[in-house]
Design a protein around this nucleic acid. Structure first.
Lengths: 187, 187
DNA sequence: GTCTATATATAGATAGAC
DNA sequence: GTCTATCTATATATAGAC
């Protein structure tokens, strides 16, 4: 359903393309205005479609939010799996930080919405993102982190919310500064 | 208008009390659901009032947002003024961090909304909060901060967004851990 | 696959009685 | 100061033509 597959009809391929374009537009507008302040109408207008056309591809607005978040959640989950299989705490931290930084640099706007939009928390019923955060925290500081460790962890990854303040940096500047700073904060 | 004053009539005093209660309710709901997802109806229901009664005290929903944010903005601005008058960078950082930490501990929910709700940015037309952040950044790192310094700054103060994850801490635990961690991040 | 048209709900906001 | 009633706009969402 979500992934293009060989053997699809032309119509199905076109539909898949449209679906992806809707998701890209939605992601951009969610990041810019917030989920709640983004209407289906705005998404449709932006793409020169009608609301009904958008509803053909998504049964509900909240499905768009889930679809937009999904790749990021999967990416981070995979990253934690990889880190789990590494030996040594230092190596684990390095792996997670490097992976997260790469992701942030490649998805500058996405991350903002995912981590700070009230709607993201509201619709995260099975607490996927909360559980990812818990896993990452345990991976780095163990099962009984101190208050100061929990706060360091929060600070390091909360940087994602402030990427818009750093638009003037090139990808390389951002990557380097993010990596150094996050590693320093996490010790 | 905003502050209770000796010599007000009983009716005016009652109105002022109601106004304050509306603001407290609004602040709580804004922090919990986000500004956009909080309707006047929800605020009215919570207080056993009618929508029209709420509109008697505030001409528009956005006025409530401004009123809710105002004390925090003023508090931080005053803090920066004080820090400006101090000599020595270390002393300035200490003063700002101590003041911000006190404020965060005393207003655990407030800060979340103010710093991360999309509506807060959208309605911040004269960029009050943006300018406060710029002032604080310059105060700590000077007029030409490096990318890494800007990121450290963002990380230190972005902790505010994650206070809900720390509800289990007592005020004293939170204050101590916040202070230590923020100072460490800012060096 | 995309449209027009519409159902339904609820938002923010106002007028005017009491 | 608070109410009832209502306006207007817009939201999400659906039915059914093409």
């Amino acid at each position: 359903m979500a992934t293009p597959v060989r053997g699809m009809s032309n119509r199905a391929l076109q539909a898949e393309r449209t679906r992806q374009q809707i998701l890209e537009t939605a992601q951009r507008l969610f990041a810019e205005h917030g989920y709640d302040a983004t209407s289906i109408q705005m998404i449709a207008d932006e793409m020169a479609l009608t609301k009904a056309a958008v509803y053909y591809h998504f049964r509900a607005k909240s499905d768009m939010l889930h679809a937009v978040m999904k790749p990021g959640v999967q990416r981070i989950a995979a990253l934690l799996d990889e880190a789990d299989s590494l030996r040594g705490r230092r190596a684990r931290i390095e792996h997670v930080v490097t992976g997260v930084v790469d992701f942030l640099v490649q998805n500058r706007s996405y991350a903002v919405m995912a981590s700070s939009d009230p709607a993201a928390k509201r619709h995260d019923k099975d607490e996927q993102t909360t559980q990812l955060a818990r896993r990452a925290l345990a991976l780095i500081y163990g099962e009984q982190p101190t208050p100061a460790e929990r706060i360091s962890f929060a600070a390091a990854f909360a940087i994602a919310d402030h990427l818009p303040d750093l638009v003037d940096l090139t990808d390389e500047q951002l990557r380097e500064a993010l990596r150094t700073t996050m590693l320093r904060i996490l010790r």
